[in-house]
């Protein structure tokens, strides 16, 4: 464990808790894409298959349970909660996320480190996580206004993966044989997708004005 990875995990944890707290307290999911949340639940479900078979550390298991629990709770809130579901605008959240899942499955079957069920599922979860934010970014472009909690949520999500890139660089230089091209490339693609959001987020913060994405 190194400081970059710990900071990345804490940032990631904080992003999902910010979102869960927002939905739970103001009983609204306005501006949140259910599709992105469903994709994240799928990412965790396919990545943490080994939670019951391979024990790595108490920290690792606890964090996996928290991520699984929070992502499925968020999906439940938006789909089932009688008040929250009313604030979900399904007309705007129209990104066909099934078009993301199939290419990720095919890519995971073609490009992986080892052709085993667990490894292919793990690779699928990496590719899917890289593109999971797209429905949310499209929704933001459409609704144009971003309430600051949603903005913070997306900022933290992007920041967590950027910290993970620093972690991979650190591990590459400090550990023998630590080479995971697939992880590195999908993590880089994921962070680049946030780049333009970061640009507008930083400028709105610097000019202390409401965050507006260009049409």
């Amino acid at each position: 464990m190194n400081i970059f990875r710990l900071a990345g995990d804490m940032t990631h944890l904080f992003s999902v808790l910010v979102l869960l707290l927002k939905i739970h307290t103001i009983k609204s999911c306005a501006g949140i894409s259910l599709k992105t949340q469903e994709l994240y639940a799928l990412v965790f479900a396919t990545r943490y298959l080994d939670i019951f078979t391979d024990y790595i550390s108490l920290y690792n298991t606890c964090m996996k349970l928290i991520f699984l629990g929070s992502s499925f709770s968020i999906v439940w809130y938006i789909r089932r909660h009688k008040i929250v579901r009313r604030s979900y605008d399904k007309e705007q959240d129209t990104f066909r996320h099934h078009f993301l899942i199939l290419p990720c499955i095919i890519l995971a079957l073609l490009i992986n480190e080892k052709f085993t069920v667990k490894e292919v599922m793990w690779t699928f979860s990496l590719y899917l996580e890289a593109v999971a934010i797209l429905p949310q970014l499209v929704l933001l472009q459409r609704t144009r206004n971003i309430d600051n909690l949603t903005g913070q949520y997306i900022f933290l999500l992007g920041a967590y993966r950027s910290l993970y890139i620093l972690n991979w660089i650190y591990r590459y230089f400090t550990e023998q044989h630590y080479v995971h091209w697939i992880t590195w490339i999908s993590g880089l693609v994921q962070t680049l997708l946030y780049a333009d959001f970061f640009y507008y987020y930083f400028h709105s913060w610097k000019n202390n004005e409401k965050l507006q994405l260009p049409a």
């Binding site: 990875r5 995990d9 080994d50 391979d54 964090m63 480190e113 793990w122 044989h177």
Partner: peptide
């Protein structure tokens, strides 16, 4: 190459 080190990251 050695067996893929299990994925110890989240």
């Amino acid at each position: 190459d050695d067996d893929i080190a299990e994925h110890d990251e989240l």
